[in-house]
Design a protein around this nucleic acid. Structure first.
Length: 212
DNA sequence: ACATTAAGTGATT
DNA sequence: AATCACTTAATGT
């Protein structure tokens, strides 16, 4: 499917042409930082391929994964920020090799006023991201770490569509704002319960993992 | 062969 | 649930 065809499914005709004209494609390889904390946002990213991981970082440098954004989605933070040329409060890292369509922020006002489908695209995205943030908040405040870990593995698996997840215990600890030893122990418990298989930099989710 | 990084584990707070 | 300290295993050069 071409870029134009893809955009046509979300946006009205004239908007597609305008977006194609003013934006440009940008590629990021896995692990690359797309937008960092404190950085002023110059463009709105629409994900074409791959996905971005959005995390917040507290004063002590502890990181917490908020949500992922994948194909045809965009980051809500960019809207709230770019309107007033504010700095980003979150960090966006390419979860895999990712391609985005970057639209300069200067066009935001115009697009919002002129195109109903753009407005609804923005609103829908903000709403979805907000819900996901609430879910993450609920996880952190009301759930135990083991529940959060299971949830984390579920989401990773869903994102890639595979039952084999390539990630280190250290990385998981980072994403969940925990420590490596604790994650290793919880994973070991899951392995004993026959829910996962552990390898170096790799976790395989078994049948029992998905049940109940 | 050696250095580096990932993961496992007991003890302590 | 986190941290320390130490061990073992896997990988890179």
């Amino acid at each position: 499917m071409t870029l134009r065809e893809n955009f046509h499914r979300i946006f009205e005709k004239e908007l597609v042409e305008e977006i194609l004209k003013i934006g440009k494609s940008q590629s990021f390889s896995e692990g690359e930082i797309v937008i960092n904390i404190g950085q002023i946002i110059h463009f709105i990213p629409i994900i074409l391929k791959g996905s971005l991981k959005i995390s917040m970082i507290d004063d002590d440098g502890r990181e917490l994964l908020m949500y992922y954004i994948d194909a045809n989605k965009t980051c809500a933070m960019t809207f709230s920020c770019c309107m007033e040329k504010r700095k980003s409060k979150v960090i966006a890292i390419a979860e895999e090799d990712t391609e985005i369509w970057a639209i300069p922020v200067e066009y935001m006002d115009k697009l919002m006023l002129q195109y109903p489908t753009w407005k609804s695209f923005v609103m829908t995205n903000m709403q979805e991201r907000f819900i996901e943030t609430l879910r993450t908040l609920d996880m952190v405040v009301f759930k135990n770490l083991d529940t959060r870990l299971i949830n984390y593995l579920r989401e990773k698996s869903k994102l890639t569509g595979k039952s084999v997840i390539n990630v280190s215990h250290e990385q998981i600890a980072n994403d969940l704002a925990s420590s490596r030893v604790v994650i290793s122990r919880l994973l070991k418990k899951l392995e004993i319960e026959k829910k996962v298989l552990l390898f170096r930099n790799q976790i395989k989710l078994l049948q029992d993992f998905y049940e109940q």
